[in-house]
Each structure stands twice: as structure tokens, then as C-alpha cells.
């Protein structure tokens, strides 16, 4: 059963995404696997993290004995003070996002379509959800990368031809990194780029609801 076949751990997915962050880039990381990405960015590549809580150049979390309610990231985690940190209001923080000043955002998702539509703010069965900064990031960041599990808890593919959940943004995702594959949404459809060790192309397609375009270039996950 493919449901039971070993997939890559969250840390490896985060490690693969880390490769995509440009040196000197301004990056916003969402909650979940995206939060782990910064752990795998080398110290040499100067990446500046932006958080909607109103801070740039945030990084490590605070020690338990130096937690300060006036120093948090958007996930509500307490930040350590670091040199070069800058604070600003929400309107400035979102001007950075909406004005195209954030180079890359890494977000989790409930569904992503073959064309790159993103659904990550509401599960229909709950009837209410939180948008937070997701729609601004989807519309404003120069590049939107989704990092997530390939299937949900009940083994439904999160990669679909058309999103059935309410979407966050249309045709905004440029790269999908999951625990079995790396895929690129294009106007022609979803192109399979890399697959996890031990998986073959047919296996990946069989757990994916969207049709995958297979080229000769499909590689094993490159870390």
C-alpha cells in the first residue's frame, strides 16, 4: 500500500525548500513545515526573515527565561533580539509584502492546483477560517513556495486539478515541495521535477489527483 510507503520527514522537506532561498533575499515563512526551513539555511547565505508581527531580520527564538510579550513572530513565538532587527507597524509590514519587496514566501496548504491556485485558509467543514497574511503573501510575494505533506490525514491528495476548498490566491504558487515530490505549476500543467528516494514516477502519480507532466529531467530529490 502506497499510503504506508515511507515518505520524507518534515525536516528533509524543509531542507529541500531551504535551497530555494536566494542569498540576501527577504523571506517570509508560514506556520508548519515552512517554519522549519530557516534551520537549514546556511549561515553564509544572508537571508533576512520578515514576519507580519512587524519585524525584519528576526531569527532565533528566545530562551525560556528571556521571553518578552513585546517581541514575537507571527506564529506567536518569542524572538531573541539580534543585531540589525527592525520593528515597524502593520501597514509598513504589509507594504513590504504587497509592494513586492518580499522575495520568497514559504507557505503550508490544504490544496494546490496544477495551475498553482493555493487553498490554505479554510477547511469547508469548519465554516469559518483565518486569512491572516496569507492572501497578501499569495498576491504580493515575488515567489510563493508551498511546503506540505503530499496527502492529508485521510490520504486524500492535496495536489488537485482544481481546488475544491476556498482559495487564497489564483495561479500564485511557483513551486510545490512535498514529502514525495517537487513539482512546478505551469500554464501547461503540473511538471514533476524531483521525486523522493525509493519512489517511482507512477507511484507519485497514483497518489496525486492532478495529472503530472513527466519530462526526461525528473531527478531524485536534490538536497
Amino acid at each position: 500500500m502506497l499510503e504506508d510507503k515511507e515518505r520524507l520527514p518534515r525536516e528533509v522537506v524543509a531542507m529541500r525548500v531551504a535551497k530555494e532561498l536566494p542569498d540576501g533575499g527577504y523571506v517570509n515563512l508560514g506556520i508548519g513545515i515552512p517554519t522549519l526551513v530557516s534551520t537549514f539555511v546556511s549561515d553564509e547565505s544572508m537571508v533576512f526573515y520578515h514576519s507580519e508581527s512587524g519585524v525584519l531580520n528576526c531569527g532565533p527564538l528566545a530562551d525560556e527565561d528571556s521571553q518578552d510579550i513585546d517581541l514575537i513572530n507571527a506564529g506567536g513565538q518569542f524572538l531573541a533580539t539580534v543585531p540589525g532587527m527592525a520593528f515597524f507597524s502593520s501597514v509598513d509590514g504589509f507594504a513590504m509584502i504587497r509592494g513586492g519587496h518580499v522575495d520568497v514566501t514559504v507557505l503550508g496548504a490544504h490544496q494546490v492546483s496544477a495551475k498553482g491556485d493555493l487553498a490554505n485558509w479554510m477547511l469547508p467543514e469548519r465554516g469559518v477560517g483565518n486569512i491572516g497574511g496569507a492572501m497578501d503573501l499569495a498576491a504580493g510575494a515575488k515567489q510563493v513556495i508551498v511546503a506540505m505533506e503530499h496527502t492529508d490525514r485521510t490520504n486524500n491528495s492535496k495536489i488537485v486539478d482544481e481546488c475544491t476548498f476556498p482559495i487564497t490566491g489564483k495561479e500564485c504558487v511557483s513551486l510545490i515541495v512535498t514529502d514525495v515530490a517537487v513539482m512546478e505549476p505551469t500554464h501547461e500543467g503540473l511538471v514533476l521535477k524531483e521525486i523522493a528516494p525509493g519512489w517511482d514516477v507512477d507511484e507519485v502519480q497514483s497518489i496525486t489527483l492532478a495529472h503530472l507532466i513527466i519530462t526526461d529531467d525528473v531527478k531524485e530529490y536534490e538536497l
Binding site: E52, S89, S90, V91, G93, F94, I97, R98, D117, I131, G132, G133, A134, M135, D136, A138, A139, G140, P166, I167, T168, G169, K170
Partner: peptide, 27 residues
């Protein structure tokens, strides 16, 4: 959306009645 909220507040305080934004298009 959070950034639209921030901009709507900014506009309210700055005498701007409305603005166009790409955030939320198609949603």
C-alpha cells in the same frame, strides 16, 4: 486579509475612501 485590513485602516485615517489591491482577487 490582514494587509488589506492594515491598508483600509491607513486609508480611513488618511482621507482615502477606497483603493485597488490585487490581494483577494479570485477568492
Amino acid at each position: 486579509p490582514q494587509g488589506t485590513l492594515a491598508e483600509r485602516l491607513r486609508s480611513g485615517g488618511a482621507g482615502i475612501s477606497a483603493f485597488f489591491t490585487p490581494t483577494g482577487v479570485g477568492t
